[in-house]
Design a protein around this nucleic acid. Sequence first.
DNA 1: CAAACGATTTTCT
DNA 2: GAAAATCGTTTGG
Length: 201
Amino acid sequence: MRLPETFYLRSNVVKIATELIGKLLVTEFDGIRTSGIIVETEAYAGTTDKASHAYGGRRTSRTEVMYMPGGTAYVYLCYGIHHLFNVVTNVQGIPHAILVRGIEPLDGIDTMLARRGKEKLLPALTAGPGALSEALGIKTTHTGINLLDNKIYIEDTGIKITRSSIIASTRVGVAYAGADALLPYRFHLKDNKFVSKGKGL
DNA sequence: CAAACGATTTTCT
DNA sequence: GAAAATCGTTTGG
């Protein structure tokens, strides 16, 4: 079942980040469905979070998408190479976002292998934010699209994730954020092979 | 208009 | 384990 708009419009971005664990991230481009179970996320809490692109209420042409209503995709280029996929949450005007850092491949694995130039299904196929975006065919051109449409969306497959199987830790690559770098805003499934390496666990 | 840098991944030693 | 690859966005002149 497709997640409804109300799922994304809520205000507790950290809670939503934990709830996304175990959901299915799906893309459908050119009639080809590719998908994977979300196993790792990071919350970015808008204007009060130094690690967020929208810290201090900053608005630029790139970050403008973060101010759209929850349920919008925010995709941007990092290190000139990698397309990073985020889910915008909260109501219009509040720039919350959740970075998806790892998925466990489910549908269209052949297509994902081809997109990544890989032969075998190894964790490197979709472990890491840049890797999973490439596998799913997500590019910066998709920033701003609505997750209630049929190109990129998230499904609840009904699988249960127990609270004890979700591990909280600090976010990756945000050392510049000072005290906010210490916030436990990264979440991942315990013992899952498709969790990114980041900085160890 | 020029310069620095990054919510990363891959490759080489 | 260390370093390179690579370019749009942001910031400063």
